[in-house]
Amino acid sequence: MSPMTSLSASQRLQAFANPARFMALSARLLAPLWVVSLGLLCVGLYYALVASPPDYQQGETVRIMYVHVPSAWLAMFGYSLMAAASAVALIFRHPLADLCAKSAAPIGAAFTFLALVTGALWGKPMWGAWWVWDARLTSVLILFFLYLGYMALWAAIEEPARAARAAAVLALVGAINVPIIRYSVVWWNTLHQPASVFRMDGPTIAPEMLLPLALMALGFTFFFVTLLLVRMRAEILRHRVRTLRLARAAASAED
């Protein structure tokens, strides 16, 4: 890699780092994003709740899957996004990356919570219990704890710049640990209940079920991105308000 290309790459990155440019771009993107994500969700929900057949074993409860699976996917997507944004923030000091990680956390936590709740609702009729200490459930629960810890750290440190760096370190350590935790939980589960009957893989999924699932997954992802942009814009505005308040306080102190 020559120094010239790396310079231009960082310059290109700098162009997007400009919050004013981000505000202008995101303002234009928001309306279409809302339309696409709500449209996909409406069509997806119609197929999921009305047009798709009930499962031959699980009956109507299979419809929970159309919300559960996209939520679980976004729970993991959210954490990956948070960790990636934190890495960018720590390495390139990209100001928007910190905001992106901070804004992604509550959305990811909400989807993780949704995945846990829909999983419990599905588990009650299927397994006869609201909660089972299954490897998958347990590791998603721990992922939820990681999200909460990350948000708690942001809330606990008063100064935004300091909070951003500390939270980024935590997100990266968490990202390294997630596979280890996941592996250890699987190991723990197989050690305790060798004859686990709880498997999602029965027959391969039918095409008339795959369509609503794909629509819902796509809709959820667009919805996630839309919410992320809204939150990031709110964070930038919050930062501006804070700067204005500090400036006013400094001015009144001089008087």
Partner: peptide, 24 residues
């Protein structure tokens, strides 16, 4: 302030592999 409680919350998920393998 009150960092002790927060430190426990942050660290506890990372302790899970140690706990699982140790008890096993």
């Amino acid at each position: 302030r009150r960092g002790g409680l927060l430190a426990s919350l942050l660290v506890l998920p990372f302790y899970i592999p140690v706990l699982i393998f140790g008890v096993a």
